[in-house]
Computed example of a mutant assay.
Amino acid sequence: MNRQLYTVASNIEEAQLFFESGVNLVQLRNKELSEQELLVVAKQVVELSHKYKSSQIIINDNIDIALKSKAYGVHLGQDDGDIPYLCKSYGKELVIGVSVDNVEEAREAESWGAHYIGAGAVFGSLTKPEAPHIGLATLKDICKSVQVPVSAIGGIKLSLLNKVLEAGAQYICVISDINQSTNRKLQIREYLNQIRKNNESL
């Protein structure tokens, strides 16, 4: 499977920028919106995504919003409900990702039916400073321990991208290093170019 870039948007404007830039997976995450407001934005973003063949929308945390907006998938943390039940009940309707920070959790999530594993924070995270810092060695162990794709997240920068790819991650989730860039489209292009070169070498 080709490696893919994964980003996080908080509104439709950010999502559109990511779509236009060629990002494959875009997670919609906005903790400040009410559920009703989030549903409105989610529906708009999902509709917009249909104009871009290679882009898909993942909803953060909220499986109801993912279902009602007809999103591609949902990403769940360890505390986001009864994950085995959600995977069994909705795994045919949605791609379900589950956050983990060790091999045991990764294997467990895969056994529940998760379609991909979110592993991190790899290098520490500005977005979630309280998240454990798992490092490249644990990321590599997680990638080896499961058959489903692993999404690496947390403190990833262009200078570290090749090491993350070498560890076996198939989805590269980048937030701060893109959102804090003075030219986000250019920064995304740099990531996509490095990922493309890696894919060509496989």
Rank of each mutant, 00 (worst) to 15 (best):
V146D: 01
Q4R: 14
V45E: 08
A106Y: 07
Q147S: 15
Q194K: 14
Q170H: 00
V8D: 02
S145E: 05
Y52Q: 08
V95M: 13
A119R: 00
L33T: 03
I58A: 03
N60V: 00
K197M: 13
V95C: 13
E200Y: 09
Q194W: 01
H75I: 10
H75V: 11
L25M: 11
L5S: 02
S99R: 02
I59C: 00
N60Y: 05
N11P: 02
R189L: 12
K31I: 11
S201Y: 09
V122C: 10
A9P: 04
S34R: 05
P84A: 07
I188Q: 00
D177A: 13
L161N: 06
N199R: 08
D79Q: 13
D80R: 06
L5Q: 02
Q27C: 09
L28K: 00
S159D: 15
A169M: 06
I178H: 02
G118M: 05
A109I: 07
G73L: 07
P149F: 10
D80Y: 08
L161P: 03
S21D: 08
L165G: 06
I188C: 04
F19Q: 09
S125N: 08
A15H: 06
R107L: 14
V41I: 12
G97A: 05
S21F: 04
N183K: 14
G97K: 05
I188F: 01
K197L: 15
N162K: 13
T7D: 06
D61C: 11
D61W: 08
S34M: 12
R29D: 03
Q44V: 05
L86I: 14
Y85R: 11
K185N: 12
F123R: 12
S176I: 03
E190T: 11
K88H: 14
G118A: 14
I96E: 07
N60G: 08
D101M: 12
N162S: 12
I63E: 00
I59L: 03
V8W: 02
